[in-house]
Design a protein around this nucleic acid. Structure first.
Lengths: 199, 199
DNA sequence: AAGCTTATATGATGATCATCATATGGAGTT
DNA sequence: AACTCCATATGATGATCATCATATAAGCTT
């Protein structure tokens, strides 16, 4: 019946998007309900028409709010596959651009530390997100499934860890650590020595 | 002159030790001045006789408060060197024990995300800490200095990333990701395929 | 023993925040 | 044009927290 039926669900999506950005930029504790609503163009009170609590929002963002980002990131090289896809993924993940834009980047290097201290619900949501991305990447690795997953887990740890540390270091190590991680990660994924140039 | 001259500096050390633990267990924002002082056996007010502000405490803990931990961790295998040291390091870092004890473990997987959002001072202190540990580990790698440092940076990223993610995941991946990272990290450090059994 | 020094404790203060109760105002209906 | 929903806004409320001013109390000096 309604042409404009989902004004509310549209707003809900905007709150989620704002939260998704602010959480990555300032952490879960660092982003207040008020500032998230402000970024969504609303005032703080209306929040509770959409979410039960801030914890609810956190779990919701982890469960679904980040997916669009990985998709946008990977959409850039959807035409590629196999080795080319993996190289593009590693180079993009450890690029200067990603280093400087935590607010629109991968949540793992910024939020995993905080999520590890929270309850079962958020951690379960994160685990689901992790499984989806693991499956996607493993599909591009030329190896039996278990071995492909093993390599991706090792490479993802390395890339997320390197980006997290690179964002913290204040000297030339910030670049060196990303290049070192990129070379080792791509070698692991391909099963032979290789190099990528981070952008 | 003073027999009991440093009651104050002794107290200061106790505050630092309590903060060091609570920061790793609950994050910088998650640990309040009050609860840190309580753990140190004092009340909140006296805090400002020792530190200018909470930010000051944070920077101080990053700069020096964590060193005792790495030392205690590495002291366990001080008799070892070269390959044996590296294997013990990787296996211990990714062990079940370390997984379950963030409060007395490495600060990187828990705090680097938060530190990356802070100012120059804390990040500089962290960079110093990182350099010290990098030099130590590189000394056990059988390769020219630059190459040794490169391998350690790649391995440390991988180990810290894997531990951070393993603490967040709720399924069997929590163990798998640590084993995958351990095998790849030790292979990188030794420059040839190798395995370690995480404890 | 009186007085001074200094470390710690007590008890505000003001800010920020999550949450909630209630108000407003506009769209669609009659 | 009056009415009714419903999404959002306004304005508490109570909690937590960092910070600070002031008080206490235990040495040390003389």
């Amino acid at each position: 019946m309604p042409v404009e039926a989902d004004r509310k669900s549209q707003t809900r999506r905007e709150i989620l998007a704002a939260a998704s950005r602010q959480f990555r930029a300032h952490g879960f504790e660092g982003a207040s309900v008020g500032s998230i609503m402000r970024e969504a163009g609303l005032t703080h009170g209306g929040f509770y028409a959409h979410f039960e609590s801030k914890d609810d929002l956190v779990a919701e963002v982890i469960g679904s709010g980040f997916d669009d980002v990985s998709e946008r990131f990977e959409a850039g090289f959807d035409a590629l596959s196999g080795e080319d896809w993996l190289k593009a993924w590693v180079a993009g993940y450890l690029s200067d651009g990603h280093l400087r834009s935590p607010g629109i980047g991968c949540p793992m290097p910024v939020l995993a530390g905080e999520i590890s201290r929270t309850g079962e619900r958020s951690r379960g949501a994160f685990t689901g997100l992790f499984e989806r991305r693991l499956a996607k990447a493993a599909g591009h690795v030329d190896a039996p499934r278990r071995e492909a997953e093993r390599r991706v887990m090792a490479a993802v740890s390395q890339a997320a860890g390197a980006l997290m540390l690179a964002r913290t270091l204040t000297n030339r190590r910030s670049k060196e650590i990303r290049q070192a991680a990129a070379d080792e990660a791509i070698s692991t994924l391909l099963g032979r020595p290789a190099t990528v140039r981070i952008k």
